[in-house]
Write a protein that binds this DNA or RNA. Sequence first.
DNA 1: ACAACACTTGAATCATTGTTCATATGCCGG
DNA 2: CCGGCATATGAACAATGATTCAAGTGTTGT
Lengths: 134, 134
Amino acid sequence: MNNDSSVVVALSPDACSTPVVDADRVAAVRRTLPSDDVVRELADVFSLLADPGRLRLMAALLEGGEMCVCDLAAATGQSMSAASHALRLLRTHRVVKVRRSGRMAYYQLADSHVRMLFDLAITHIGHDEERRGG
Amino acid sequence: MNNDSSVVVALSPDACSTPVVDADRVAAVRRTLPSDDVVRELADVFSLLADPGRLRLMAALLEGGEMCVCDLAAATGQSMSAASHALRLLRTHRVVKVRRSGRMAYYQLADSHVRMLFDLAITHIGHDEERRGG
DNA sequence: ACAACACTTGAATCATTGTTCATATGCCGG
DNA sequence: CCGGCATATGAACAATGATTCAAGTGTTGT
């Protein structure tokens, strides 16, 4: 069936370089896409998880519960400075929270989504390892 | 409830750069941490999700099912070149798969983990809309 | 054959980001 | 108060990566 509402490609003035095959589908998809803000925040969250150092930090907290910075640094194999920088990032994004006692800072995970994100991603790469024949 | 009074600073004989407060906990955590390879793969997966362009691409495929490159580019608001580069990355990481028909290339998601990763991350950033029951 | 088309790819550019070194802050014991 | 300690932070540097332009591949229609 042809779309009587004329397959007019309502391209913005500057985006006229992109041809469109199925204009209706494109329009429908555009409507359902998350807003730019949400997309940016999502990318932000995943960026936090996209670094081995931070990943180890989170895995350590997943297992160790609550730990101080120097122990976290030792457990994850990075310098205290690197660990502190990483924890700061995670802190500002509400992934971990800190409790201070004297000169120590004890960190723990702030919510439980991290564990699920981990498991899901592990499932994904496990799925990848499972395939045969290279 | 007091635990710090009994905390013995069990420094390893050769505590070079990183001091350790709770050596046992550190050792235990180290044992449970995923291997370097797994950590790297995890970071790799999350890196794919850490870009707005790719995120929009995946969200579009989540909604649109199977789409050609130019429609994906139009729907996600990027150039065809950018979309193609992004899709190539997603392809090599087995996140999307491609079907060719003539000069067209139709992409779709290769596994269902993406949707769960999305929902989990959206829950985390607190933009979870009330969509249960409807 | 030719040209237009859908897509891919390579190279260059530019921005982002992780790591390190050095220094700063605040707490504790003497 | 002072020195040592746990942590935090700033700036510089190097590496990674996204985007763009230009050119390349294979396909369809005339």
